[in-house]
Design a protein around this nucleic acid. Structure first.
Lengths: 344, 344
DNA sequence: TTGAAAGCGCTAACAA
DNA sequence: TTGTTAGCGCTTTCAA
């Protein structure tokens, strides 16, 4: 793709400075073993010639990598863009490049992307986003990741836990339990859960939290419908429409992410149903806009940027004997979209 | 960073297959000059050994690059994450890797990131986000970019036009003119503009559109205050507070991006001012959530994902003699946050 | 159709 | 402190 014309190389710098490439290399990478004077001159010349070292050559010769791979489901999704932002902040500080790719929530694509990252010889891979309950898919991914770590690479997962890698885990179950308790405490009994694919581990974990809270309250889980649709705003709309149609007595929509909750709010508004008077709505994640919605969204806050930062920091530390897991707190944020159920 | 243990190399594959590395290379890259039988066997062996080619070696030997650099101000900003999503979609289709970095709206950092991308020998660079009115800063950036293109690299800018590179340009001026006209047509005369730094070319362009519409209506631009704050939600809050304090007679807040408009809505709500009855609010960009706010936000739609796609597609085509500019339409989207001014 | 060998630009022993 | 040199893993002439 790139023609590669006359960019100055290390030899050129060395020649200009009247030293060997070895000395030039040492001088530019700030290693010791060069007199200050020479180092000084080499750097000046490099600067004036606009020299920029070739990372490929360096990586090939040194066997080192200065880039990190980041796999997200979809960067336009605020959950992932927040995480990505955290990863990039840490990478920026350490002078690392970030190679990002989309998995599109598809294990096949994820596998391909992983292979690309490995081909690019990234030193670490951060995999963000839910895993898949499809055992076969997970196995292939796991195999690739294992090979990578055995070759000296570091892997950290965010929000998935079935691999034997280090992981940053949001307290999905606790968070879901907290928000469910919140609705129950307000007096809701006819809650409808609105969620993305049950094949995502994130969903499974959050659903576990919901069921725990129901169990505490002695409510049989069969009484709480679970409506599945894509894990997006549009999915939230579809699902909410279904709730309204199939479960007309519901007094609260408990969405398993904010996107779906936003879709729910939008449908309710268009139906002229007041939130929370006619229907309470809760989300999960606390994306930045949740606080600015009207009504502001009751949700579960996940420190997404910190999760990204933490993940890369973890990856940059050498591997421990046993996989490290860092659990990030999920905290209920009570806002205006939830309230007591209407009297019926 | 990466220790690099026993990942199979091309020689290993060649050896296993009983052919030379040259043949193995040809077979794996699908070039012709190898008998189908041999090619077949080599591929099988590579597959079974889990061979993943080393991009660094390939790039070094072949002088080619299969990665693209993407510079955004901040990926957690929906404007940029939408663009990034578009870029990544096209990259994914073409089997290219994307190296993304933050400029943080700081020309120094942007320059450094650019150099990192060049060091990584990306074939193309997509620079998203406003340029800087600081001439000195732009010059350094321009110099680096020029050197890159001269060395055969391709550069496409999104939303900035001072470089002699190909560019994807949203119709900022037209869009701003349209939204300003809209407010004027509703009867507003006391409009307050709320914007990010005047040092950003995006802001300059949008302001030009505002001024054009004012001129059309015969309103002296001095009558319309321009309040500057960071180009973020918080900036929108700060600026709106200032509007309320310093320009109490205003009947409309014309924000130059959606983020600031969202901040404005939030402040107005907390002051119990009704939108649009007491105050109209308009945004710019049409980020996904704009339609779901309450009231839904009147704004100017920019096809952000398409801008990202278009930019990379443009970059992947060979350079033309003269820089190409693709203008993307900015369309007014009238929603519920704007209405006639209250009678005073 | 295949193979041998010369690099790509750099780092890292090893010598001097 | 400096230089020489052997690779890193691959692609690509050039011969066979």
């Amino acid at each position: 793709m790139m023609t590669g014309a006359a960019a100055p190389r290390l030899v050129d710098i060395a020649q200009s400075a009247g030293v060997s490439v070895a000395t030039a290399s040492r001088a530019l990478s700030g290693r010791q073993g060069v007199s200050t004077a020479v180092a000084e001159r080499v750097k000046e010349i490099a600067e004036s010639l606009g020299y920029i070292g070739n990372v490929h050559a360096r990586s090939l010769a040194g066997g080192t990598s200065s880039s990190v791979g980041l796999v997200v489901h979809e960067v336009a999704d605020p959950y992932f863009s927040e995480i990505a932002s955290g990863v990039m902040r840490v990478a920026g500080r350490r002078g690392l490049s970030v190679q990002m790719c989309h998995s599109g929530r598809d294990p096949q694509i994820e596998l391909r992307q992983l292979r690309t990252l490995i081909a690019n010889r990234v030193g670490v891979i951060v995999v963000a986003g839910s895993g898949y309950l499809d055992a076969e898919a997970e196995r292939s991914i796991h195999r690739e990741l294992t090979r990578f770590t055995q070759a000296g690479g570091r892997v950290v997962a965010i929000g998935r836990h079935q691999h034997a890698t280090d992981a940053v885990l949001p307290a999905n179950t606790d968070g879901a339990q907290a928000v469910t308790r919140h609705l129950l405490a307000l007096g809701h009994r006819r809650v409808a859960v609105v969620t993305g694919s049950l094949g995502l581990t994130t969903v499974a974990d959050r659903l576990t939290g919901v069921h725990r809270a129901l169990a505490e309250a002695g409510i049989p889980r069969e009484e709480v419908p679970v409506v599945v649709a894509p894990f997006t705003r549009d999915g939230g709309k579809t699902a909410t429409l279904e709730v309204l149609r199939e479960h007309p007595g519901s007094t609260a929509v408990l969405a398993l992410n904010d996107d779906m909750a936003i879709g729910a709010l939008s449908v309710l508004r268009s139906r002229s149903l007041r939130v929370p008077d006619d229907m309470s709505v809760t989300g999960f994640d606390d994306v930045p806009v949740a606080a600015d919605l009207s009504p502001s969204l009751t949700t579960v806050r996940l420190p997404m940027q910190q999760m990204g930062e933490k993940a890369l920091e973890l990856a940059l530390r050498p591997a421990a004997k046993r996989p490290r897991r860092v659990v990030m707190p999920a905290t209920l944020v009570e806002r205006d979209s939830s309230g007591p159920p209407r009297r019926s």
